[in-house]
Each structure stands twice: as C-alpha cells, then as structure tokens.
Design a protein around this nucleic acid. Structure first.
Length: 834
RNA sequence: GCCGAAGUGGCGGAAUUGGUAGACGCGCUGGACUCAAAAUCCAGUGGGGCUCAAACUCCGUGCCGGUUCGAGUCCGGCCUUCGGUACCA
C-alpha cells in the first residue's frame, strides 16, 4: 500500500486520484542508489571522464537554505544529464569548515567551533543526500582536520622557500576596545564595531602575504584560455588593473630626499603643479615643516577611521593639508608644493602622485578647492566646456612635447626621463599581494616560529602538522585566541633548539579553498598535498559551479595557487577550472537571506509538503539559473501539478514497455495524425531539453517537458508500442530534473534496470524535426500586417505573389510606392512603402 | 565612489545569431463534475479604441535620444535594484 500524504479517507477509495507518494518513492531510490553505489566514480577509468565541481559548502548553520538548494540541485541535474549521456562523472562534495562565523558563534554561546562545525557537517550531509544529489561520498573532505590543513602549511612552506610568502605591514580595521581586527562586514555603516559600538580605526599590523603579484601578468593572460563568463573575466582584469606608465623622481626642495611617483600620464608632466602624498607615506614626517606639523597630525587623525572606499569616493568632497615642503618639477625646475590627501593611497603605486589638475578630474577638484595652479597640457577640442580634459589631443604648454598626441608624447617623455636618469617606464598593478594572516582561532596555524636568536623560522616539513589546539579562550576582546594558549605558543626553535614562540596567526580560509579540488581525488592521500597522478589525469576541473560573489577573490586565488603548483611540478595544467558557471542569488524581499535580517526561508517545509523533486524542479523553473531572483513560492503548485499529472499518466500506462517494446524510430508515413504530432513533439523536446540542460537553462527545459506532457494527453489514441516510445523518452528527459520521479516512472512502465544504474541516452530523429509549412510574418514599414502560412524555404518570387495577394497587405500598400522589399525566408517579408 | 550585472503582462518568466513580443507556469474569469466545497478537467486572459461578436486598429519590453527596412536584442546618456570592493565565504 503506497504511502498517502493526505489523511482524508475518501482518497483511499478513489485510486484514480492517488497522489504521487513522494516520501516513499524518494527514500526508496535514495536507498537504491546508495546500495548500488551508482555515484562512486571509478577514477581509473579515464574514457569520457568529466570532473564536475561545485563550490563546497560553508557549514555556518546546521541546515541547508534555499541558496544551497538553488546552487546544488540544478548543478546536480546537469551532472546527472551528463551521466545519462555516458560520461564518467566525478561530482564530489565537501566542507569549507574553517572560518569566522563558527568563532563568533563560540564567543556568543560558548560552543566550541569544532563541536558546532562537526555537528553542522553531519546534519548537512544527511540533507544533501535527501536532496537527491549524486555526490561521490568516498571523496568527502573537510578543511578543519589536520589531515587536510597540514597541506595548507606545507603549501605555505613551499611558497616561503620561493620567497612568495613574506611579512610586511598592512592596514586593518581595528577595534580599539576589543583589541581585535574586524572584517569589513563586522564594521557597521556608521564606522563602528558591531559588537561594542566603538569607532573602528585603521591600524598597521605586521602580516603574512602571498606574493600573487608575481603572477599578475600570467593571471591576466590566462583569462584568454578559459571558458568563463565574460563578466567574470572583465572583473578579474579590472581587479588586477594592469596599467602602463612611468615612475618619476621628484627632488625635494632643500633636501637630499626625493619622492618617487607613479603616473599613467607622464606626458602631462609639465602640468604637474603640486604633489600629493598618502597621509601614511613615510616621508611625511621627514619633510613636513615645523609650522605645518600640527595641521598634518590633525589631518592624519581625522582620517584614521575612514575606509578606502570612503577615501577614494569621487562623490565626497576633497580634503587634504599642505606640508609646507616643496618639490622640484624635473622638467621645468619649478617649485611645487607638497600636500597630503586621503585620496592618495599607500597601497597603490608608490603612495605618492604628481597632481595634474588640467588632465585629471580629482586633481582639478582638489586644486580648485585649495587654490592651487592649473595648467592645461593637452589642448581640449573647441567645443569642450568641462574642467579637466582627460581625452586625447595635442600637447601644449609642454616645451619639447608640444603638438604631440598623448601616445607619442608619452614615448618621448619616457625616453627623456630615462636619459636623464630621473624616471623609467613601468607597469603598475592595482592587484595587491594576498594578505593571508588572520588574528583568529578557527583556521590553519601558520607554520612559523619566532626565535629571539634566529628570528623568523619556518617549521620543517617533517614537523607538520602544527596542530590547532582545542583548548583556547573565546573572549570577544584581546586579539588572537591562540596567543593565550601557552602550551601552543611555547616551543623550541627548529634551528637553534632554544626557546621560541609560535606564530599565533592563522590562515585566510581562501587558502583552504584554493586547492581543495585537487584533494578530492584522494582525500586520504598521505604522501603529499594530493595524488599528483590523479591530479594530472583529472584536472583541470571541467565545469565549476558557484556564486558570482567569488568572481575575483576565491577564483583568482585558486588560479594563482594552481599556477604555483604547476611551477613546482605538482600539476601539469595552467588553469584549475576550464568552464565556469555562476548560479544567481536567491533573495527574500529584495535582500540576501540571513539570520540577522530574519528573512531566511526554510526549504524543509516545502520538502515535506511537495518532496525534494518538486522543490528542486521549481527552483529550476523559477527563472534563468545565472540570474537567481527574489524568493516566492507562488508557482510551486504549478510544478507540483506537473509532477502529479506525470505520475498518474505513467501509472495509467504501467508495464506498457514490458509488453510492447518500442521501435528505435518511426516512419512519419506510417503514423496516424495524433502519433505524428506526438512523434514530432517528442523529438523536438528531446532536442530542446538536451540543448537547454547542456547550457544550464533549466527553466526552459522544464517548460519544454510541460509542453510535451500537454501533448501526451492524446497518447491513448496511439498504438501501444508507440506509447512506449513516447513514455520512455519522457521518463528519460525527466530523470535528470526530477531523479526520483524519473526512476519511478521508468520502473512503472516496466523497465528493469534503473536509469542511473545503467545510463542510456535517446537520440533525436532528425527527420521528425523537419516541417512542411512555416508562418511568415508580413510587415509593411516594419509593422506586422499579416501572418501567412507558406511552404518552407519558398523562393522570394513565389512568396511575393502570395504576399501581395493578401487583402491586409493590399490595404496598406495600395496607392503607395513600394520602395524596398526585404525577405528573410521562413521568417519575415517586409515591404517598405512611401 | 569604483568594477560587474539586471529591469518584459497582475506575478515568475520565454523570445539561442537584429526578424511574428508575452512560450511555459502562477493568478484571475467563465464553464463541467459535486448536495456543497476542495481537488481535477475544459475554455479565455498585455492594455486601450470600435464592435453583439468577429474583423480592424492604436499603444506597449525601466526613462530619454540614436542607428536600421526592422530594436526587448545594437550605440550614447540617465534612473532603480542586486553582487564585489581585498579579515564573511
């Protein structure tokens, strides 16, 4: 007796109205798939291999939310579809288990991050299975165990050896009360700490960096070789921000010091009427004159709590102060004042600029406000009425550059600078080195020891892992929790054996996620980071699915690490992810779902009411996968109806396939009218569904199946073996979208083997796609005036006769002069009249 | 602010390359079934004009302008919303 959701006893007597018993069916097939191990990928079989990867889960809560379902459900549909097509699909799943939220949770509740994380992971694993995904759980991994993170440490050491891991000062958001570093999201919009309300300031700390800038050029050029969304490549290009220009030294008046600046417009050097240093620039203290010291200090104080975004906002009024010092413009020997201003950042270029108000909007605004001189050095066009002129034009007021256009002027001045030894051509990047230190507990300890005698000493490889201790205090204030664990901190120097202290910083979790796709291939491999043989065979990843919010950081870091691993001969490819797909974001009432907003929608109520297949298919049906959208359950009933109708249709044809095997193909001539229509529609749908799923357009794939179902209501007018033909194809197309239901329908018509146990694919009968007649739209002056049925590929002469014989066309053309006729066969016939 | 997207009926959306705007679904309206309701099934459904109805016709893809025989699609300028902005992941 099938399970019934409704408790209404009337339904039991009315078997025709039996609802699809999803709970029974779903658990049945999940059990079946697991027992038969149909998801286990044989990694030794390389023919038709396909590595399909999803960005792994961040287990911040014990539940899957709608966003997870939206990401993983459709992506799994794609993988299942590929499996049916005969690919040997590897689709793993794991847990990005380190990170800040678990630590915040510990501060709030006292639950240790390890305990809450492991609990969340085991809950999530169960729910991922209930979703009907085909992950290979043999490849399951989590980043918070020594077995995984020791290889982060090993990676760190390799980078360190090559000089690509180093320490320097960098500004961070600092809460003076909590004595701790804050993420940008922990700083409220008014610039205060989310925990204690204190105004957050910028503070310099010594931090570990990975030298990603060494790979900047290759990271740019590699973008041409990968099949990624254009917008993502553009964002990475802009993020790296390569610009060509020059470095120029400006002598400081009355001093032996000089200021090095970077400019992309060396051609405008004659228009440099003042200089600006970043307020943090080391020279500021040296060159500020006594009478300006007070103002400079006050200014530095006033911008202490400003973020880079605030500082560089062109919408904000410019601020700055004079240092009282002067520099010498090297091209004309003029004395120009040196200012400091927040719109110049220490982290970009050299932290100093020459200001050319004539050709730069920010400089113009600044000069205007503070009464600094403005000299145009590029001739604006006659009708130009703006302020700074930033476009191309002939140089003016520029001595030996006069008359030259920007490109030529740049070349000439760079030669001049290089000859005189006061400047040179340079390439500058917006990209900064990757700051990997975190003053946090829940992450990978940095494998470095600080020794009074030997200084900074890397932990030898054979002493890895440096295990993250369990016992620490989670106080909201007081810096890194690891610093409070003396057992951890106190150690011996690996070099001299003397007393030493461990580095108490942990690594950015983006380190974990920059190579996990390699570890999946054998998560328990203990001879290295990952099995290099499998890595060479199975990577790059064929398709990678994840949110666009990772467009620059994660996706740039993993490209960098992959290239580094190639350089130390561990992988043989240049790029980690060949094809990239972004699923959209599901919002609720216009906002990202989050606990703090209280707008999280729990998928479980829908799973309980409609089942996993309906929910998953509804998410696909909602709209384009890459777009996401605002959550609404309004249409889910439509998908549920589709599922109910599908199920009852298959029920009413039970065992039809067993008793009446179908033919491979049918000849259109031997079919009756209904069969002909259904045959065409079935094959059109096969074609459509295949193209749509292939391109991650699940919404239109579901719609196509709905259309086919509508057509199949006349299936009873068809002969039995033809019914089999249509139904087995229907179940086949359904099964990647609604895997449990697909399998069940397949079984209902009497198929012995499970679809996913023994994958098979149905090809399209191309002959069924051809049509005899098409509707051609007839336009007069671009407006549709008639729609006429014509035979396919009709020559223009014949089409013309039909078109001009039409009453409606006559009405709009008679008495007028036909100027032009445009005929696009099978589509449109446009007549232009005067 | 900067970088990157998106905006189409009452609603989610479709229109693969510049060629019939609104597929599919929700909702709504009417009908069938029912004592009644729910469920299900059938039909209609962008807005306006004219009309018993049909036919016909005008307007319509965020706003303004442009290119083209033809623009949801291409170009320029805005508006709104979303993602990222380097310690959330």
């Amino acid at each position: 007796m099938p399970f019934l959701i409704s408790l209404n006893p009337i339904l039991i007597t009315n078997t025709d109205q039996m609802r699809y018993p999803f709970q029974e069916v779903e658990s049945k097939w999940q059990k079946f798939w697991e027992e038969k191990e149909i998801y286990k990928t044989d990694l030794s079989n390389l023919s038709n291999k396909l590595y399909h990867l999803n960005m792994f889960i961040y287990p911040s809560g014990a539940k899957l939310h709608i966003g997870h379902w939206y990401h993983y459900g459709p992506s799994d549909t794609w993988a299942r579809y590929k499996k049916l097509q005969g690919y040997n699909v590897f689709e793993p799943m794991g847990f990005d288990a380190f990170g800040l939220p678990a630590e915040n949770y510990a501060i709030k509740t006292g639950v240790h991050p390890q305990d809450s994380t492991l609990k969340n992971i085991s809950d999530i694993r169960v729910m991922l299975k209930r979703m009907g995904t085909m992950y290979d759980w043999n490849a399951d991994l989590m980043t918070c165990v020594p077995e995984y993170y020791r290889w982060n440490q090993w990676l760190f050491l390799q980078l360190y050896k090559k000089g690509l891991a180093y320490r320097k000062n960098a500004p961070v958001n600092w809460c003076p009360k909590d004595q701790t570093v804050l993420a940008r999201e922990q700083v409220l919009s008014d610039g205060t700490c989310e925990r204690c309300g204190t105004v957050v300031v910028q503070k310099n700390l010594t931090q570990w960096f990975f030298k990603i800038t060494d790979y900047a050029d290759e990271l740019l050029e590699g973008l041409n070789k990968i099949d990624w969304p254009e917008k993502t490549k553009i964002m990475q290009t802009n993020w790296i921000g390569r610009s060509y220009g020059a470095e120029v030294d400006f002598k400081i008046y009355g001093s032996s010091e000089s200021i090095k600046i970077f400019t992309t417009r060396p051609d405008t050097l004659f228009g440099a009427t003042y200089m600006v240093l970043a307020p943090e620039h080391p020279l500021v203290d040296k060159l500020t004159t006594a009478e300006f010291k007070g103002k400079v200090e006050a200014y530095r104080d006033s911008i202490k709590s400003m973020t880079e975004i605030d500082r560089t906002s062109t919408g904000k009024e410019k601020t700055g102060v004079d240092t009282g010092a002067f520099a010498i413009n090297p091209v004309n020997g003029k004395k120009i004042p040196i200012w400091i201003a927040d719109y110049v950042l220490m982290t970009y270029g050299t932290g100093a600029i020459m200001a050319v108000p004539g050709q730069d909007e920010r400089d113009w605004e600044f000069a205007e406000k503070f009464g600094l001189p403005i000299i145009r050095t590029v001739q604006p066009p006659e009708n130009f009425d703006g302020k700074a002129y930033t476009e191309d034009g002939p140089a003016m007021n520029s001595d030996f550059l006069n008359g030259l256009y920007v490109d030529d002027a740049k070349k000439k001045i760079i030669n001049w600078l290089e000859e005189k030894g006061i400047g040179k051509k340079t390439i500058n990047y917006r990209l900064r080195d990757w700051l990997i230190s975190r003053q946090r507990y829940w992450g990978t300890p940095i494998p470095v020891v600080h020794c009074d005698k030997c200084g900074e000493v890397a932990v030898p490889e054979n002493q890895l892992p440096v295990v993250l201790p369990y016992n620490v205090d989670f106080k909201p204030e007081g810096g890194s929790p690891l610093a409070g664990n003396s057992e951890f901190v106190r150690t011996k120097c690996p070099q001299c054996g003397g007393e030493a202290e461990r580095d108490v910083d942990t690594m950015d979790t983006f380190v974990d996620s920059s190579w996990y796709y390699l570890r999946y291939l054998n998560p328990r491999y203990d001879k290295g980071m990952f099995d290099p043989k499998l890595a060479n065979e199975w990577t790059p990843v064929d398709t990678y699915v994840g949110g666009a919010e990772h467009a620059v950081m994660h996706l740039l870091y993993s490209r960098f690490i992959h290239k580094f691993l190639r350089d130390i001969k561990l992988v043989n490819s240049d790029e980690p992810f060949t094809k990239l797909i972004h699923q959209g974001t599901i919002t609720n009432q216009g906002a990202k779902m989050s606990k703090s907003r209280g707008n999280v929608v729990d998928p479980n109520s829908f799973i309980e009411t409609y089942g996993a297949d309906v929910f998953r298919m509804y998410l696909m049906f909602m709209g384009p996968y890459e777009l996401g959208g605002d959550w609404s359950d309004k249409g889910i009933i439509g998908v549920d109806r589709f599922v109910q109708r599908t199920y009852s249709m298959f029920e009413s044809y039970s065992n039809v396939a067993k008793e009446n095997p179908s033919k491979e193909k049918y000849n259109l001539d031997e079919l009756n009218e209904t069969e002909k229509v259904i045959y065409r529609k079935t094959n059109q749908t096969l074609e459509k569904v295949s193209v749509e799923i292939d391109n991650f357009r699940f919404n239109t794939a579901v719609a196509a199946l709905m259309e086919l179902l509508n057509e199949l209501k006349n299936l009873n007018e068809c002969r039995k073996d033809f019914q089999t033909y249509s139904l087995e194809r229907f179940a086949f197309m359904l099964s990647p979208l609604a895997p449990h239901l697909g399998e069940e329908c397949w079984r209902l018509i009497g198929k012995e083997k499970s679809l996913f146990e023994k994958p098979l694919t149905f090809g399209v009968d191309e002959k069924a796609l051809s049509v005899d007649n098409v509707t051609v739209a007839v336009q007069v002056n671009g407006k549709v005036r008639a729609k006429i049925e014509m035979s396919v590929n009709l020559p223009q002469d014949d089409a013309k006769k039909i078109v001009f014989a039409d009453e409606r066309v006559k009405n709009h053309t008679e008495g007028k002069q036909v100027v032009k006729e445009i005929y696009v066969p099978n589509k449109i016939y446009n007549i232009v009249v005067k």
